[in-house]
């Protein structure tokens, strides 16, 4: 369990080093085996951010009707009740902790984090979360090529985000958000809350769970905000020590 987490952290770092566009030359802070931050299984203590009970109270376990189930989501499903898919919250918690851990690590290393949500009901709270923790949000119509043709789109060389967090992965009921495909193309790590009708294949860190209810989205926003802030806090602490 711990070793898998480690693998995830390291794989993220190697992914992101591939991309030459972003920030700065990888001069200092070499990733070594002795690095206490990376070798720690849960350096930012994200496991205590929530309990399975919290997830249940926020109605994370509700999926869509079982007719719309995507077969690739079967491993995360507990069963079906009254025609609706119910997620296995133990698994969700495990995946969510992994995602929170990665988020905190990226924030700790001054990565850019971009939050996504499509849908008018919850997009404001997502934007607000991004604003509050000093990161970025995109809850509007996705113009093609923001990642893949960034230099043209912004009229200059632009640093792309290092981590994309999707609080829902669908544009509408049928199509997946284009940014997921684009981040995969640009090898940007992604975290995605995948509901029972979504495809988790292109997402680096899928989190099975309900992506429609305001309570659930509020909970996700709260958790990821705390994880980001913890990462940044640690960063500040370590910088002041040097």
């Amino acid at each position: 369990m711990i070793s898998t987490k480690l693998m995830q952290v390291k794989s993220l770092c190697s992914y992101t080093c591939l991309r030459k566009l972003s920030a700065v030359s990888p001069k200092e802070k070499q990733v070594t085996k002795e690095d206490p931050v990376l070798n720690h299984p849960d350096y930012f203590n994200v496991h205590n951010l929530f309990t399975v009970k919290d997830l249940f109270d926020a109605r994370v376990h509700y999926g869509h009707r079982d007719g719309s189930l995507d077969e690739r989501m079967l491993p995360y499903v507990y069963g079906s009740r009254l025609g609706h898919v119910i997620f296995d919250l133990d698994k969700t918690a495990e995946y969510l902790r992994m995602a929170l851990n990665i988020t905190a690590h990226v924030a700790y290393r001054d990565g850019l984090i971009l939050l996504f949500y499509r849908g008018s009901q919850n997009s404001h709270i997502v934007e607000k979360t991004a604003k509050d923790c000093g990161e970025f949000a995109h809850t509007r119509f996705w113009r093609g090529g923001i990642f893949t043709n960034a230099n043209k789109q912004f009229g200059a060389i632009t640093r792309l985000p290092d981590l994309c967090i999707f609080f829902n992965t669908l544009n509408n009921v049928l199509t997946q958000h284009t940014a997921i495909r684009d981040s995969a193309k640009m090898s940007i790590a992604t975290i995605g809350v995948v509901d029972s009708n979504c495809n988790p294949n292109l997402i680096t860190y899928p989190v099975p769970g309900n992506d429609d209810s305001p309570t659930a989205v509020e909970l996700y926003c709260k958790l990821f905000k705390q994880a980001i802030l913890r990462g940044k806090e640690k960063r500040k602490e370590h910088e002041s020590h040097k």
């Binding site: 850019l112 971009l114 970025f136 509007r140 113009r143 923001i146 632009t158």
Partner: peptide, 14 residues
Amino acid sequence: ETGRPHHFLFYTGK
């Protein structure tokens, strides 16, 4: 200087 945009909605383009 690190390439971090100032605006939290920078990536929307507007």
